[in-house]
Computed example of a mutant assay.
Amino acid sequence: MTRHVDAMVAGGGRAGLAAGRAGLAAGHHLRRKGLDFAILARRTGAGRGMTP
């Protein structure tokens, strides 16, 4: 399956995932601009590493 996106958020930080707070914030702003995007993360499962 091929999917065209306007932007891609990819991680590689200490936690090894893009969908941390910064990745989710980036997705929020991309969506507000009306852009289609994908967030790539190494780990599976929602919310891992999301401690306050």
Rank of each mutant, 00 (worst) to 15 (best):
G16S: 06
R43S: 08
L40D: 04
R14L: 13
A18I: 01
R43L: 07
A22G: 04
L24Y: 08
L30C: 05
A38D: 02
L17K: 03
A41M: 04
R42S: 13
A25Y: 15
L40F: 15
D36E: 15
L40C: 14
G27V: 03
A25G: 11
F37V: 10
G16A: 06
K33V: 02
G23R: 06
G23F: 04
F37K: 04
F37C: 12
R14Y: 11
L40H: 12
A15R: 06
G23E: 03
A18R: 00
G27M: 12
G23P: 04
L17H: 01
A22H: 07
H28S: 09
L17S: 03
H29M: 06
G27E: 11
R31D: 10
G27C: 14
L17W: 00
D36P: 02
A26C: 15
G16E: 03
A25L: 15
L24I: 14
R14F: 15
R31V: 06
L17V: 11
H28P: 00
A38N: 00
G16K: 04
A38W: 01
A19N: 07
A18Q: 06
K33M: 13
A18E: 02
F37D: 05
H29D: 08
L24R: 15
K33Y: 07
R31E: 15
L40P: 00
R14N: 14
G16Y: 02
H28V: 08
G34R: 07
L35K: 11
A15T: 09
G20E: 03
H29R: 14
R31T: 11
A26E: 01
A41D: 13
R32G: 06
A26G: 01
L40S: 11
K33R: 14
A18W: 00
H29V: 07
L30A: 04
G34E: 08
H28I: 01
R42F: 10
A38C: 07
G27N: 04
L24P: 00
R32Y: 01
G23D: 06
R42N: 12
A19Q: 02
G20W: 00
R43F: 08
R21I: 10
L30Q: 04
R42E: 14
A38S: 05
R31K: 14
H29C: 06
R31S: 13
L24V: 08
A18N: 03
L30W: 04
R43I: 02
R42K: 13
L24A: 09
A41N: 12
L35N: 02
I39Q: 00
R31F: 05
H29F: 11
A18F: 02
L24M: 14
A25K: 15
R21F: 08
D36H: 11
D36V: 09
G34D: 10
H28E: 12
L35M: 11
R21W: 05
R32T: 12
K33S: 12
R32K: 14
H29P: 00
L30N: 03
